[in-house]
Design a protein around this nucleic acid. Structure first.
Lengths: 185, 185
DNA sequence: AGCATTTCTTACCATAGGTCAATATTTTTA
DNA sequence: TAAAAATATTGACCTATGGTAAGAAATGCT
């Protein structure tokens, strides 16, 4: 079983490039983490509820989704050593239509309160990620977005089904399948 | 000429729903603002440069763009009483391909350094905006995105050309024109 | 006011990606 | 391990949007 001091070091190592704070602050943060375990496909946060946690993913993977007519759209895919949350709902403490689901059996270390420094760092990271996604959706083709994801986050392809990857990059599963076939020709 | 104490109040009024801090902090922030004026179409921040400012738009409007082959993609449209910056480049203090241009004659109040509280608040706001854009690009049709922008930010249509609005919602100017024609039938 | 430039619209054809339906493949469960 | 469920692929067809080119309308400039 992982210890919280280890989690502190893991956090420090993982986020050093982005969040320049002392190990002690990370350990203080980690000391108040609550371990939560979820089975594959278990709902972590429901549509219509308010998000109470920021979750650090120790193992497994988490998706954030929006339900559509008959299908669902994946708006984020997070794997081990990153944070996951319906951060939109967390920030304004209002319900949102977004729901989170474990895509594998997952171990999360969760906190409901955060210092300003880590809140700022997380929001900044998330802003940059979302802006890059916006730019990619506006300027790249579906095939280019697929290849970019494949080269930047190859581990996702070992863990997440193609139908979620398809909706994340903004195409149907059928189109992703055809597109992959084209590439391998 | 607007005074900085007035700017402080204007900031407080504008951001009260999002940033819950005392007027004094806003006035301290405003007291260090630098007025910068730009003519219509003047470049505020070039591609390949690093962003040094957060700009509060007192009047006018600003667009952030990425150059493509023969065209440009608009990734943000900001009007008076909001912030504008290449915040991605500002955060990591590295050059980015994004450039900012005044879409009208504009008065900006700019700062290069920010307290943690306002930095956190700005990053949070920007994250929420960008995530909503991502969701809209993934789940709405071009027509729905157009109608949404029209109902949520009608003032943009008085100030910004349709070609910029088109690229912002992710279609060509021609498609936007057709789509508008359909709606009015 | 008149010319130049930019913006907007329209028409025609091309194409990426969507929809639906069937089948194949993999994973889960009993 | 067999059946069931979920996932992935494929094919036929369709639709929204793109590309190009031309003209109309608006805006800016001298």
């Amino acid at each position: 079983m992982t210890q919280y001091t280890d989690i502190g070091k893991q956090l420090k190592n993982t986020f050093d490039p982005y969040i320049n704070v002392d190990l002690k602050l990370w350990e203080a943060f980690a000391s108040k983490l609550q371990l939560r375990q979820f089975k594959k496909n278990e709902i972590i946060k429901e549509t219509g509820q308010t998000e109470h946690y920021i979750n650090f993913i120790a193992s497994g993977s988490i998706g954030n989704f929006i339900a559509g007519k008959g299908s669902e759209t994946c708006i984020s895919l997070s794997v081990a050593n990153s944070f996951s949350s319906d951060y939109y709902s967390f920030l304004n403490q209002k319900p949102s239509i977004i729901y989170s689901r474990a895509l594998e059996n997952s171990e999360l270390y969760s906190r409901s309160a955060m210092g300003v420094w880590i809140g700022k760092a997380i929001a900044e990271q998330l802003f940059m990620q979302r802006q890059q996604i916006q730019i990619d959706l506006l300027t790249l083709t579906a095939e280019e977005r697929y290849l970019k994801l494949l080269s930047e986050k190859p581990e996702i392809f070992q863990r997440v089904s193609l139908k979620h990857i398809a909706s994340y990059i903004g195409v149907t599963a059928e189109s992703l399948s055809r597109l992959r076939k084209n590439i391998s020709l």
